[in-house]
């Protein structure tokens, strides 16, 4: 009897919440789950591999350049005799970190601009969203190239430039969501109770948008990795001898006929990681945003 509540409805079984439940649901989407496991392994390998494989990525051995796969160099060596496995790991660190932090800045800038424009409306909305649209109409890859040429090519600059040329999409998505939730009854209730604007925005509106932001961030990392690689490939990104997957690719193009594997390895790394992030993003969208219909 105590299990019955006022409306005669039996209590629901205790719902499993949090991460375990989340991964159980994610596991149902095979591609997304495989992508997730793959990304986990790649990140573990890239960031922890250096403790197992201790060869420096910058130790040059010209006598042993363009070596094929041996037990000493499992993935061979490059034109300067540097160990390719070590360079892939260290290059991956830079590439993935640049991807991650670019995404963080992208989400921060885009999220704040979108939420503020949508929530406050009026002239704030007009100024911010027209600015967003203006930014979208500039071919942002070329803007990034120009900015890097002018501002220098440190990893931090690369992160900033990627972020400031790719926040617009998130701003628009967050803007739309904010407009939608701003009209909801619980937001009005909160205002009626005397909640101030900041509290309403962060307690009531932002939490509703977080799933959308998570999806956008996952896809954003993929985009940032791709952009970083493209910029580095063009020689305008992070400069050698610091390895990134993008500048490894650039370096490899001179040996495309003699040692094609030098290009294939970083290229494959970029492609697979970007693909996995995209699959994971799609999987998360199905999971977190049930209203989104696949075309």
């Amino acid at each position: 009897m105590s299990e019955l509540t006022q409306e005669g409805v039996a209590k629901l079984p205790i719902q499993e919440r949090g991460f375990i439940n989340f991964f159980r649901k994610l596991a149902k989407n095979k591609i997304a789950f495989i992508s997730f496991v793959f990304l986990l392994l790649v990140h573990l390998g890239v960031f922890l591999g250096q403790f197992v494989w201790t060869i420096s990525p910058e130790s040059v051995d010209p006598a042993n350049s363009l070596a094929s796969w041996t037990s000493e160099h499992p993935l061979g060596t490059d034109d300067l005799g540097r160990d390719v496995l070590a360079r892939l790991m260290y290059g991956g660190q830079i590439t993935l970190l640049v991807g991650f932090f670019s995404m963080v800045f992208t989400v921060l800038v885009g999220g704040i601009i979108g939420a503020v424009a949508g929530f406050f409306g009026g002239w704030i909305d007009i100024i911010l969203m027209r600015f967003t649209e203006a930014m979208m109409s500039i071919p942002n890859f070329f803007l990034a190239l120009v900015a890097l040429t002018v501002l220098g090519k440190s990893p931090f600059m690369v992160i900033l430039v990627i972020a400031f040329t790719s926040w617009m999409e998130i701003a628009r998505v967050v803007y739309g969501e904010t407009l939608k939730w701003k009209e909801s009854e619980f937001v009005e209730a909160s205002k009626t109770m005397g909640s101030n604007a900041m509290r309403t925005l962060f307690k009531h509106i932002v939490p509703q948008i977080i799933p959308t932001i998570i999806i956008a961030s996952t896809l954003g990392i993929a985009w940032a990795i791709l952009t970083e690689s493209a910029i580095s490939y063009l020689g305008l990104g992070i400069q050698p001898p610091t390895a990134t997957w993008g500048n490894m690719l650039q370096n490899a193009q001179q040996y495309i006929w003699t040692a094609p594997i030098l290009g294939v390895l970083p290229g494959l790394s970029i492609t697979l990681v970007v693909l996995a992030y995209n699959f994971l993003g799609d999987g998360l969208r199905d999971l977190l945003d049930p209203k989104h219909h696949k075309k």
Binding site: S184, E185, F186, A189, S190, M193, G194, S195, R199, K203, H204, P207, Q208
Partner: peptide, 25 residues
């Protein structure tokens, strides 16, 4: 409010929903 679904923030626990006027003040 009219709508028992729309008037409660779906991402807040009952305790925080009920305590909201207390928290605001």
């Amino acid at each position: 409010y009219q709508d028992p679904f729309g008037s409660l923030n779906p991402r807040m626990k009952v305790i925080d929903l009920i305590a909201e006027p207390l928290d605001i003040n």
